[in-house]
Nucleic acid binder design. Sequence first.
DNA 1: CTTTTTGAACTGACTGGTCAGTGCAAAAAC
DNA 2: GTTTTTGCACTGACCAGTCAGTTCAAAAAG
Lengths: 224, 224
Amino acid sequence: MKIRHPRARVPVTIGTMESSTTSGGRTRREATRQKLYEAAVTLIAEQGFSATTVDEIAERAGVAKGTVYYNFASKSVLFEELLRHGVGLLTASLRDAAERADREGRGKVDALDAMIRAGLVFIERYPSFTQLYVAELWRTNRAWQSTLMVVRQEAVAVVEGVLRDGVANGEFSDEIDVQLTAAALVGMVLVAALDWQAFQPERSLDDVHAALSRLLQGRVSGHR
Amino acid sequence: MKIRHPRARVPVTIGTMESSTTSGGRTRREATRQKLYEAAVTLIAEQGFSATTVDEIAERAGVAKGTVYYNFASKSVLFEELLRHGVGLLTASLRDAAERADREGRGKVDALDAMIRAGLVFIERYPSFTQLYVAELWRTNRAWQSTLMVVRQEAVAVVEGVLRDGVANGEFSDEIDVQLTAAALVGMVLVAALDWQAFQPERSLDDVHAALSRLLQGRVSGHR
DNA sequence: CTTTTTGAACTGACTGGTCAGTGCAAAAAC
DNA sequence: GTTTTTGCACTGACCAGTCAGTTCAAAAAG
């Protein structure tokens, strides 16, 4: 395990708070960071973190290399914040789906189904991010390991919460293993969606959703 | 300025035949390749392909760097053959489970269940390989992409075959989407097992298997 | 049985190239 | 006036792949 002598240069984030806003309301800096995220996510999804160079990221983002280091302390920090950002979006989306189902007074099975759909929508929108997330999730000995752990848990916790509520109100068997079942559900959606994107992208989201719903509700065996 | 000893015989590596066998019956070469696979699989699972150096692999295998290149044309070729080797084991194991269930005249649901167990056994035995496989599967633009595609298809085809047979004999609904359902099942097992290994390795395989069986058979909703 | 030869397998110092990160002055944006 | 971006030269650690040379067990020769 070797670590390059970083000798870190202090990123000048000392500046006063959010500076002026552009017409859109976002700071200029924020817009640059966004462009860098977008460039990094596709490149890293395709090639992996180590095989992707900072020069490539800068070029794809249409920005000078120095800008990358003006905005992020290092390549790994850029990646780490990208992970945080992406999983944050997913978690918010899952939570939203679950709450919506709740507010509409539907059952926990419906909530689960809504979350499956939310997951599919997310993956359809950010396939590269998903790919990269899966590739990194079970790695050990990487700098961003602990960060990843935390955000993963936030996302999975949403699913576990719905399962637990369902057990509590009798909708689900109290013999289910919440943690394992949550992982299995996430895996089901993740892998099915990634396969969908990779091998039959022409299919509709509804189609994929229907197949997963059927599996979830045990309507696989049995006729018709 | 190092001066190398002159005076030497030319190696002339023209030979092609498998040389003598050691006591075990395996050639020495085969044993070395096996050691290199084992070293490479853990390192690459932990750090990824690009972040793993050939020097590390050689060191972990207790072999000189030159030996790696004596046995494999390049780092990627080593990795590619490792993938082929590993997925080959998995496919054989799945096929075996399916055929055993068939021979014993059990239904396709049981065959599926047996394959889930076979998958879990495989992952318990080769967690690093599984991890590395998942990390690489959906990447694009990588040298070994096509190889991976082929072996993946071989493995998934086994699951798809059982599903198709089940639809044919009426055990499964003819409305299921074979391809998607197979992917979802694989994902369910993969992710649940990886989570099991990573976050609660103390649990037994039977335990995990039971949780997945329950999910498969739709015994999640409904009480008891 | 003993000595010599053979060559596949292995070794590790070395090379040529790559890439993260630096430094900084000038320009642009705000 | 301040913040952010640019452009580009520079450094040095790092690493895939090479190759001259060594090892050793088994085959051939004596």
